[in-house]
Computed example of a mutant assay.
Amino acid sequence: MKRIILGLALCLGLAASPAMAHFQLVHTPELALEQGGELHLSIVFTHPFDAGYTMDMETPEAFYLVSQRGDGEPRTTDLMSSLKPISWKSTTNTGKAFEAKVPVRSMGDHIFVLVPAPYYEKEEDAYIQQITKNIVNVAGMPGHWNEPLGLKAEIVPLDKPYALWTGNVFRGVVLSDGKPVPGAEIEVEYLNHEPLQNERAFAEKGAIEAPQAAFEVQTIFADENGVFTYGLPRAGYWGFAALGVGPDEEFNGKELSQDAVIWVKAVDMK
């Protein structure tokens, strides 16, 4: 599914500008923690680079945590009851979103998985569903960060998404029902406006200015094995969305783009 709407502007003879990429955000400030504690997660469907129009979210289909038991094996915890509906303010509007406060106490990896309800995009007359992962690590003990979870649409990291220096590359493999997706189209976007969790809003001013609109949403493609590589030029959060890779192609009688999203964070060397 394309994320650029040009038709109306062209019909009206206006200068067309690209729409920002849709990204499902599951945000907590830090991904690499020295010790456990209560995590505050903001769950927002938005446009990360410009913090522009924020889409209304319905109750997700699933929200859960995959962490490690004492023996190192994965453990799944349903987090649906932790979701709290909120209003989130972008730079242009206020949209329906969610937040959750989740305790993480054990060492190792904590993989948050969100399966949102499909979102109806009126301008495209189609639905978008972005199945999203964000991985938090406690105390540096590695766990199951690079193992697939069996999601319909999934990006499995090939580099630790919580332990990336600025200038590192991030690699991932795009899966559809567990199978690699050759040539998958992936949008990459920088979280340019800081999420102010207590204010339930994005910061008004972004960290950087793009020299031209094409820089705001990067587009890359996976190779024949579904693997992609992207260099991280700046510290902060980066989102990767593999478009339309899931097996479900229709919802409520309309086209569905079932996307896979993962968030990673780059950190400056000091």
Rank of each mutant, 00 (worst) to 15 (best):
P161V: 12
E154G: 06
L158Q: 07
I135Y: 04
V173E: 12
M80H: 07
A139M: 02
V104G: 03
S82D: 14
E61W: 10
G95K: 05
K101W: 09
A139Y: 01
S82N: 11
L65M: 07
D78R: 02
F112Q: 10
G95C: 07
N146F: 13
T54R: 00
S42F: 01
T94N: 01
F112D: 05
A117D: 15
K179W: 13
P116M: 13
K152G: 14
D125A: 10
Y64M: 07
I131W: 09
V104I: 12
L149T: 05
G72V: 05
P142N: 14
P48F: 02
A153R: 10
D159K: 08
W165Q: 13
E124A: 13
K101G: 03
A139L: 02
A153C: 13
K84H: 13
N168E: 12
M80D: 08
K160Y: 07
E124K: 15
K101A: 07
S87L: 12
I155S: 02
G95L: 07
V138G: 06
H110I: 11
I43H: 01
V113E: 03
N146K: 12
P48V: 05
N168T: 14
I111H: 00
M141A: 08
G95N: 09
K101I: 13
D177Y: 04
K152M: 12
G72C: 03
Y162V: 01
T166K: 10
D109Y: 00
G178W: 04
